[in-house]
C-alpha cells in the first residue's frame, strides 16, 4: 500500500449506553481497522447486529466514536469540531438504505438536490443548472426537479439519493445497503449506475451490505464483519473463492444460488460443514 489511503480507520470503537439504570455500555464496534484508497470500493459484509451500519455512521459522524481514529484526507475526523467537519463534508457523502426515509417526502427533488449546496454560496441559477446535471447523471428526466419525492418509486428515489450524494463531488461515498430495499431488476440497474459513476468520477465507495453477491459485483476488496470485529479481509477474488475464516465460509454457503443443481451442492456442503462444526464443538 504505497498510495496514501483516502480513509484510514484505526481501531475504531463505538459503544452505546445500555438500557436501564446503571447498565454498562454496549460495545458495538470492538476495534475496526479499515483503509480505502482513492477510487477503490471496499465491501463491508455482515449480518444484522454485526455493526456494519455503525461503521458507516461513525465515519459520517452520526455515531459516537469512543476510541480509535478516522483519518480522512490526512485529517482526523474524530478530533474535528462540528464546524470544521461541516466544511469538510464535501468530500464525504452517503447513500442510505431506505430510499423512503432518506428523502423528505414533502420536498421537491430540486430542493433535495440543492440542499448540500446551501451555505456554500452557490447562486440560485447555478443551482438549477446543477440540478439538471445531477438528474441527467443518474438517468432521471430533467423535469423531475419540480416534483415531490413521494411521487417516485423506490429505484428512482435511490437514484435521487445518489444524485444528492454526488452534488458536492465527493471523493468517498458511504453506501449503506443502497439496494436491499429494491427489486432484483432495479437493484441491477442501480448497481450499474454506481459503477458507472465511479468510472466517471473516480470516487471511492465503502459498500455496506449483507448480500455477498452484491458485494462481489461491486468491490475491489471485501471485509467481513462479525460481532463488531473484522474477521477476514482481502481482495474480492480471494474472499469469494478461497475464504479462510469459517464464518466467511458459512456466510457464503448460506446464500442460496439461483440454480437448483448448484444450490443442492451448496446446501449439502453447508450441512456437512455445520455437522463438522457441531462435532468439533462437542470434542
Amino acid at each position: 500500500m504505497s498510495v496514501q489511503p483516502l480513509l484510514d480507520c484505526r481501531d475504531l470503537r463505538v459503544s452505546f449506553p445500555g438500557r436501564g439504570w446503571r447498565a454498562g455500555r454496549i460495545e458495538v464496534l470492538k476495534g475496526v481497522s479499515l483503509r480505502i484508497r482513492p477510487g477503490e470500493t471496499v465491501g463491508l459484509v455482515g449480518e444484522s447486529g454485526s455493526g456494519k451500519t455503525t461503521v458507516g455512521r461513525a465515519i459520517l459522524g452520526l455515531a459516537p466514536v469512543t476510541g480509535g481514529s478516522i483519518t480522512f484526507e490526512g485529517a482526523d475526523l474524530t478530533r474535528q469540531a462540528a464546524r470544521e467537519r461541516r466544511r469538510g463534508a464535501n468530500a464525504l457523502q452517503a447513500v442510505f438504505q431506505d430510499p423512503y426515509s432518506s428523502l423528505n417526502p414533502a420536498m421537491t427533488i430540486a430542493d433535495i438536490l440543492t440542499e448540500p449546496l446551501l451555505g456554500r454560496g452557490s447562486s440560485r441559477a447555478g443551482g438549477r443548472e446543477r440540478v439538471r446535471e445531477l438528474l441527467d447523471r443518474v438517468g432521471l428526466p430533467a423535469d423531475a426537479g419540480s416534483r415531490l419525492a413521494r411521487e417516485f418509486s423506490g429505484g428512482q428515489r435511490q437514484r435521487i439519493a445518489i444524485a444528492r450524494a454526488l452534488a458536492l463531488q465527493p471523493k468517498l461515498i458511504i453506501c449503506d445497503e443502497p439496494t436491499s430495499a429494491l427489486d432484483l431488476t432495479t437493484q441491477a440497474r442501480v448497481l450499474d449506475l454506481l459503477l458507472e459513476i465511479q468510472e466517471a468520477t473516480g470516487c471511492a465507495y465503502l459498500f455496506i451490505t449483507h448480500d455477498l453477491a452484491v458485494v462481489r459485483r461491486m468491490s475491489h476488496r471485501i471485509a467481513v464483519l462479525l460481532h463488531g470485529e473484522i474477521v477476514e479481509e482481502g481482495d474480492a477474488r480471494q474472499i469469494c473463492q478461497e475464504p479462510r475464516h469459517p464464518y466467511t465460509r458459512t456466510l457464503q454457503m448460506a446464500a442460496p444460488v439461483a440454480d437448483p443443481a448448484r444450490q443442492r451442492e451448496r446446501r449439502l456442503a453447508r450441512q456437512r460443514l455445520a455437522r463438522g462444526q457441531l462435532a468439533g464443538d462437542h470434542q
Binding site: R57, L60, G61, L62, R85, R86, R87, G88, A89, N90, L92, Q93, A94, F96, S102, L103, E115, P116, L118, G119, R120, A161, R164, A167, L168
Partner: peptide, 8 residues
C-alpha cells in the same frame, strides 16, 4: 442524517 452529512 443525510442533511447532516451534507454539512447543514
Amino acid at each position: 442524517d443525510a442533511a447532516r452529512v451534507s454539512g447543514l
